[in-house]
Design a protein around this nucleic acid. Sequence first.
RNA 1: GGCCCGGUGGUCAAGUGGUUAAGACACCGCCCUUUCACGGCGGUAUCACGAGUUCGAGUCUCGUCCGGGUCACCA
Length: 553
Amino acid sequence: MNDYEKLAERLFPDITMTPEQYEEKYPARPLPEGARVTRFAPSPTGFLHIGNLFTAYVNKLTAENTNGVFFLRIEDTDKKREVEDGVSGILAGLRAFDVEPDEGVLGFEFEQGEYGPYQQSNRCDIYQSFAKELVQKGLAYPCFCSEGALNDIRAEQELQAVNKGYYGDWAVCRKLTAEELLEAVETGKPYVLRLRSTGDENRRIIFEDMIKGKIEMPQDIMDVVLLKTDGIPPYHFAHAVDDHLMRTTHIIRSDEWIASVPLHIALFKACGFKVPKYAHVSPLMKEDVGGKRKLSKRKDPEAAVSFFVEQGFPKTSMLEYLLTLINSNFEDWRKGSPTAPQSAFPFNLKKMSASGALFDMVKLNDVSKNVISVMTAAEVYEQMVAWAKDYDAQLYTLFSGNPDYATAIMDIDRDNKNPRKDIAKWSEIREYVAYLYDELYTPCFDLPENILPGDAADILKTYKDVLNVEDDKDTWFGKIKDMCAGLGYTPNVKEFKQTPEKFKGHVGDISAVIRIALTSRRNTPDLHSIIRLLGVKKVHQRMEDAIQYYEAQ
RNA sequence: GGCCCGGUGGUCAAGUGGUUAAGACACCGCCCUUUCACGGCGGUAUCACGAGUUCGAGUCUCGUCCGGGUCACCA
């Protein structure tokens, strides 16, 4: 046994599993050629950022498109960050929008898959096994520098205007011999384990990022921490060991990791691992005065995935919108395949934009309206009720109390070739259906400027006499047209436009008055259907109320 | 500050040396229309800046500027 081996044994006396044994325990995955293994690896903070959902979705798509595997790993090596049961919130956000992992952590203290444990806090023995081997090979060493000593080094580096960090001549413990290190360990001094970097800052590493393209950077020369004083690794080392053993083929993660790729490559090489492919996703931005900035958890409510759940965006809407950001040819594809499932889209990692996109609520709304417009009334009802159950108790009671009525409302104008696009999210429905439920209805008979209250009263009085709820649509509208002449209006919109001086208004104004009297709104779906849903009694009552209101003016 | 990434209309963006510089959202106008919508047609508006290479540059090179990231015993 040489000195390094002795040191390794002294440092990790209880570690008996060797890296070779772990390699056998986690063999190459039995997947078809070209299958990609991806992962989403958040900290269990309980908060899922929309940008994380975006990245996770890209991971899922990548795996799905190649018949690979998408797994969830929890990076809980930092106790300070931890939140009680922080996993559930993240999983809930993922599930809300169907970005469900195939493998890994799938619930509170529940995981599935052959490559676990998937929670880093349960993998300490594994990290230490690989760390032990690094020590044996002289590629890692214990460092006894205190926080204060580290600060002193940093201050001196600042003074000399050189790169900060623990490296080269600054790395005092690196210069200790194995014998000296062993002696220091015996004193019981706390230590961290550091990589003995073999990097040369004058040499460059080149790697191909699948989104950003070719990236060239100086080699990493830092003697980074492999194991903290508590024996747990920080992100970098854990990433190398985990993604190697879990046989991840593509590391798709957020942009901010680019700077540490040289380090990660150094780590993979030091451990003798094959370097995975990298793809760095640009962050989602938010419009701000004078430019754009990253969506902020603190300032922007829409940074949280839960916000979209609360607002009631259908999961397909959200994914549809995200897809437009992920691959800009998605919209063209959608045009050609309006009803195809999202999973049929030929997603391409390389087509992702290298720059950060602004998250556009207006566009999301538009996309969502399209999605909802092609749903059946039954689908709308089902999703709407599911949402209301959690977020609008009154609406939930109203809807589930009479499903046929609610479905009939949602069915208005829905079987058209070009359906209406009124609704972008379920939270809008309360307002949308308000006039169809007495419990939600507050009358408001305000007229457009071009209609006088007296005329409105006349219109309603005339209409009240001819109205028959049983009329079919043509008869119904025929009666409205027939009313026009007697009241000084024209049934012909074109005619009105040509000679407006000859009329008080056109049939549109008559309809507007009736619409406002019955619904208190200036735009609603087809009035004829609404009248039938409302029923004779309510229709007459509301017209009476409106007439009274106008006559009092 | 060092290193790295990015920069085409208000927004998402196509674009791989020769295009009238696509398309979508938003906005505006017109048309359709039996209301409200849907829909159709059209319009405003973009290559950050400066050099260079080239017959020719949004595209290649260099510089500048702007925005972002990163330089922890956080991830």
